[in-house]
Design a protein around this nucleic acid. Sequence first.
DNA 1: AATGAATGAGTTTTCATTCAT
DNA 2: TATGAATGAAAACTCATTCAT
Lengths: 218, 218, 218, 218
Amino acid sequence: MPNDHGVAHSRRRKEARPTEILQAALHEFTAKGFAATRLDDIARRARISKGTIYLYFASKEELFKALLRQPVAHHIEHMTILLETFPGSMEDFLQGPFRSFQQAVFASEARHLIRLFIAEAQTFPDLTEFYFREVIEPGLAMLHRIVERGIASGEFRPTALNTFSQAFVAPMLIGLLWQALFDQYHPLDTDKLIDAYIDLVLYGLKGTQTCLDKENCR
Amino acid sequence: MPNDHGVAHSRRRKEARPTEILQAALHEFTAKGFAATRLDDIARRARISKGTIYLYFASKEELFKALLRQPVAHHIEHMTILLETFPGSMEDFLQGPFRSFQQAVFASEARHLIRLFIAEAQTFPDLTEFYFREVIEPGLAMLHRIVERGIASGEFRPTALNTFSQAFVAPMLIGLLWQALFDQYHPLDTDKLIDAYIDLVLYGLKGTQTCLDKENCR
Amino acid sequence: MPNDHGVAHSRRRKEARPTEILQAALHEFTAKGFAATRLDDIARRARISKGTIYLYFASKEELFKALLRQPVAHHIEHMTILLETFPGSMEDFLQGPFRSFQQAVFASEARHLIRLFIAEAQTFPDLTEFYFREVIEPGLAMLHRIVERGIASGEFRPTALNTFSQAFVAPMLIGLLWQALFDQYHPLDTDKLIDAYIDLVLYGLKGTQTCLDKENCR
Amino acid sequence: MPNDHGVAHSRRRKEARPTEILQAALHEFTAKGFAATRLDDIARRARISKGTIYLYFASKEELFKALLRQPVAHHIEHMTILLETFPGSMEDFLQGPFRSFQQAVFASEARHLIRLFIAEAQTFPDLTEFYFREVIEPGLAMLHRIVERGIASGEFRPTALNTFSQAFVAPMLIGLLWQALFDQYHPLDTDKLIDAYIDLVLYGLKGTQTCLDKENCR
DNA sequence: AATGAATGAGTTTTCATTCAT
DNA sequence: TATGAATGAAAACTCATTCAT
């Protein structure tokens, strides 16, 4: 019965549509930015007609926001939960889950989205607020918690890094932007960059431990 | 003598036009991005007519490129020359001229332009190449040179930072982006961020070897 | 059944669009020339929106070229084929098919297009080449062939007209231009003009043959 | 006294200005047509500033009309006067002054202006009327007069050419247009074209009268 | 008289959005 | 649901014309 098949097929596709559209949108917005991307291009890439997009997203802007709202927050959430129950040292956490998190970001589509967000944030103030509330604030809180726990346990010494948790993700940001902009001119090994940076930070944080005389070492 | 005034006024204005236009363009492009900025807006801000822009810039794109090509390279150049003749230690250089350089970037218009470049680089590949050749490559070379000189003189130990000079400017980038995007939600003291980071880097570079005795350490 | 009607209507219209647009374009371009014609006017005349034109033609220039490329060549082609198989005398051909051809040009839209081409040829060099290759060269070749056949059969005497086949169509050109420019001041009977001219040419071509005494004839 | 010189020089130039502008305008309008020609181009070619044009011509349109009104009429006038007092046969007139006139048109700037007029006539109805009254009508009258005189003296037979004097200048028109449009693809010897045509016309006009036996000479 | 910087109306072109099918 | 032809608002860009010098 072709009808049955047709319906089933249609339903299956129907459910997949938003995702298909978002994937196409990711590709196009990433390549050209919001304004320079045409819905036609997204539709063509998703192999649907332009009108169909409007069945699932109210406007180009909403599609863009939906794309950017999707996929970053859960990384942070996951890390935060992991941290709460993490039994080991904070050095182990940074060398383990935190490093993995950064590698995961580089491996995922999120890598494009972060850059896209930076590019378009001015144009979409509500996106900026969304990111701050959903990603930045919880992310910084988590980083702060790591340092706090490290200090509380005597693993870390107190440093300015406690106030500037942003610095923890600085090399990830550098890496993302470099990859997108300059890799063609001069490739960058982002894994090693992250490793080097974690070492640097840990070195700075642990500081006095490697020092013979704790009292005298700052 | 109205004639005198008129001539003087007109001449002064004529020569100032490109600069006036570029200033207005900086403001508008910065606020809305390339595509969303209308030449009408730039013209209105510069208090001239739309057509006048075309007397000085061939197109919206050329105006944008002219804006971005202007003002970053000379900062780097200045630093590079300074470094060559710098008599002191590399720690002094980082704490002195290098810190000043970063503060200068934050104080200047360049702060907006860097973010604008990141946002629009995808759309203007020739700008990307320009930045790589004129800013990134010489900048990295200079940073590399600092570490090399420090190692050669026994001031620094060899670390991965030697390979990843990008990491030196990571917090400046974080600071620029934070200022533009999130300062309204949570202000960031960029001066202190830079200080903290230079400390971190120096600590990592100089290593534990140098610290036995607080008075002697730093 | 409104649906049926609707579909039929829409389909019919869609296929007809390019033709409708070209007709409107013919009218407007003919009346005002290329530069002075606004796409708005063409759209209004075709009862569509400005944007629709761009669904079928890439630009104003392409629309103009499409208009001029259309409809002249086939006249020539038809004549050329006719000539190859024409059984009668060349006088009969000139008095018959060739005269009809000229009358057909006067009756058709081509009459406007030729003038339009003359007006705009400077601006569109590729159109000029197109006309030369597709219309002028084959047209002259055909005229040349007529004279040749006439001479070969002894019907015509050799004259300079053999080298200047252009002269055959001179009155048609005069007629077209007169009609467009001066008919309001002084109407011209183009049919009779053509007749008179064909007589003149035939008289010249047949020339001495019809004269009994060669020495006395001219 | 530099003032004197200056004034003299200025006056001399001042008087020459309109002509200089018209020459530049001829060149530019001829090359690109009315609409596509920019006053800037004309000014540059005349080595003056754009504003200066407006000291001598009220608008682009007036400049164009002034250009086209100039220089054709006097050719006709001259011919007409010549004809009135011409002592020889009309054949001599056609072979002499009339042929010279056509050659003069080809050699002069008028050659461009005629084509320019054809191209733009639609856009400037008053120009069309001007041409009809000043050029076409007197020109046709003169041609008509030639034929009449020839018939009156028994030199010519009555033919349809009497009614269609336009045909006399047909090859000149063909030649002008060919030169402008197709000479690059296939050069045309306009002198010989005119010669051939005058022969053809004379042959037709003198016709059967020079033939001994009317019945056999068509 | 001459200049040429400045203007802004006018035109082409693009593309998000709609809607009849 | 899905389509894609049609729309028309919006924006870049041009250039005749003006006018202060």
